[in-house]
Design a protein around this nucleic acid. Structure first.
Lengths: 208, 208
DNA sequence: TGTACATCAGTGAACGCGCGTTCACTGATGTAC
DNA sequence: TGTACATCAGTGAACGCGCGTTCACTGATGTAC
């Protein structure tokens, strides 16, 4: 948004990615087009082709950015509660949900597999693996602390991620009846779900 | 596909819904357009407007149909294992996953909240509520049998549905690393997840 | 320091496409008498 | 049973739109001498 009057923008590539994220939040996944992204970045609609081979490549960059934000939020929650594995689990899960609530369509495009040949985008592959490994470490620590049952940590990671991811999407896609939603806070509901998977009882009051 | 040569089709409305489902399976969510649906049903591209006010209404009908299929599959699993609450839980969950695997894009459009004002489509509202109630009854039975912990059945239903839904989507959207996928069968992975949420140990061999 | 020139990152016109939707129409069907 | 006519469910042309992508171009920048 700054430095608009220059012929040479300086950092158009990132500006386009940010513009894309803004369009997602304003107009949703279906509103995202290369031409709108260019317009929002204050540049002609052909300019993006200097930085991205095609639309797919821009979407891959936006997904990569989304995964990075998710990683950082979750990692931040883990760091903030070192030595408290139950709290790490709860707050990491909540960080994931919060990102999705803040930026639903960025979340959706990031996790929608919209990038068809993910293999072609090494930065995306890298951050997805890094993120999965973070979850594996998190659940492994919880297992060591006796908070999750024993079992292959990668399978356990899929279970925990699946639980949190499914909860997030049911909320985002408005699939949960409002007669339920009206009676509980989202974080309460998330904790109730996590409570089912942990071996210890979670006191919701400690987290809300 | 039958009775093509008649000016009056007889049951074009349902034929259009089926054509839509076929296009979803062939070309995915982004390939779905009113014009393609009409073409596939062997009818001019304006014909659908005799049966649907707009594209959104067709999508709502396709979603309704998707929910009905899911309901029937899950209900079938429940019926098939009366008196065995653990088996009911596992097979109902697996029926959900199987529908998604068979018809990924029909599943996605059905659960994507693509229908913006769901309220305007009473048939859709009805089947979503009916489906949720089925899950509530299922988990309540499991709670009575001591297989799931106590707690409000509607919250428990959200937890179980979320777990299964998240697992399903992570698979569909290809978010699970192939180093994990290569080592386990999907049903094993699902059972591992369900095993975390139940109070009893599940023997995967009994189900695979 | 000044100039020539290659390179880079933009512009704007143009392309062809498929889309959702509207409209005047027409052929088929069913009903009243 | 036969006919007139209203209703229904289609047709096909036309609309305006936004899209992704290409292309010849040009203005700005940086480097060699």
């Amino acid at each position: 948004m700054t430095r608009k009057n220059q012929y040479h923008h300086g950092d158009l590539k990132n500006a386009l990615i940010q513009a894309g994220i803004e369009i997602l939040s304003r107009e949703g996944v279906n509103g995202l087009s290369l031409r709108k992204v260019a317009r929002r970045a204050g540049v002609s609609h052909a300019a993006p082709y200097a930085h991205f081979a095609d639309k797919q490549e821009l979407v891959a960059a936006i997904s990569t950015e989304g995964y990075k934000e998710i990683y950082e939020r979750v990692y931040g929650a883990v760091q903030r509660h070192q030595g408290e594995p139950l709290r790490q689990l709860v707050e990491a899960a909540w960080a994931y949900v919060e990102f999705a609530l803040n930026d639903p369509d960025h979340f959706k495009i990031t996790l929608s597999g919209a990038v068809e040949k993910e293999k072609d985008y090494p930065a995306l592959v890298e951050i997805t693996q890094k993120s999965f490994n973070l979850v594996v470490e998190l659940v492994a620590a919880a297992q060591r602390a006796g908070i999750l049952r024993a079992g292959p940590p990668d399978l356990m990671a899929v279970s925990v991620w699946g639980l949190v991811h499914g909860f997030t999407l049911l909320i985002l896609e408005d699939q949960i009846s409002h007669t339920v939603l009206d009676r509980y806070k989202l974080k309460e509901m998330l904790i109730f779900s996590l409570d089912q998977i942990t071996t210890v009882d979670i006191d919701p009051q400690a987290f809300i």
